[in-house]
């Protein structure tokens, strides 16, 4: 009789444990979060994304790898633009020498344009706070624009960016993606 009771208890324990294990398994399946589909890498991610690296231009400071790569392209492009007389009317501050203690045109443009491109390529930690491209290139809304830009000038500008990117060793595939992004604002920039 006693052994029957023990056998019954053992059986009940086995069934109970079995049901607990099986229910746990079911719960695991139920609670398992579905694996998110792989997100498409942005151009910013391709260029290094948010990985922090030492900033060669600012000793002791860190910078996102994606931003550093974009700044390299932007800085090279600014050199090209500064040497291009056709772009001179649009970037006069670049070569206007300032006194010590003032922000130079190069530093200001490098910072602003890097932020603009970084944001456009998918950076999440920066915000471009300037005017939208349409208003920024409309002399009626932006007094700093002496004249409306035409398609030829825009193409020269993009060409200078490409030269700068090539000087910086950026692969053609990435230059193509960058060109697509720049051309996406052509309709807003070209107003003549």
């Amino acid at each position: 009789m006693k052994s029957n009771k023990l056998a019954l208890l053992a059986f009940a324990a086995l069934v109970g444990a079995g049901s607990l294990i099986s229910s746990c398994k079911k719960d695991d399946v139920k609670n398992q979060t579905p694996t998110p589909p792989p997100t498409k890498m942005t151009l910013y991610d391709t260029l290094g994304g948010t990985t922090m690296v030492a900033d060669p231009a600012s000793p002791g400071k860190m910078i996102e790898k994606g931003r550093l790569a974009i700044r390299g392209v932007v800085d090279s492009s600014i050199f090209v633009i500064a040497g291009d007389p056709k772009m001179q009317p649009y970037f006069t501050k670049l070569l206007a020498e300032v006194g010590a203690g003032n922000l130079t045109g190069f530093a200001a443009l490098s910072e602003s344009f890097t932020t603009f491109v970084a944001t456009a390529t998918g950076a999440k930690n920066f915000t471009y706070t300037g005017m939208n491209m349409k208003d920024a290139h409309d002399p009626a809304k932006n007094g700093r624009m002496a004249q409306k830009a035409d398609a030829a000038d825009f193409d020269i500008f993009v060409g200078d960016i490409v030269i700068g990117a090539k000087k910086n060793g950026v692969p053609d595939e990435i230059i193509g993606r960058l060109g697509t992004i720049l051309n996406s604002v052509k309709g807003d920039v070209v107003q003549k």
Binding site: T92, L95, L109, S112, H137, R144
Partner: peptide, 18 residues
Amino acid sequence: FMTPEEIAKTAKCPVMTE
């Protein structure tokens, strides 16, 4: 080099919201 008058007369890059 550009004189301040020339800089004032000509257009500037729109990203410099000075």
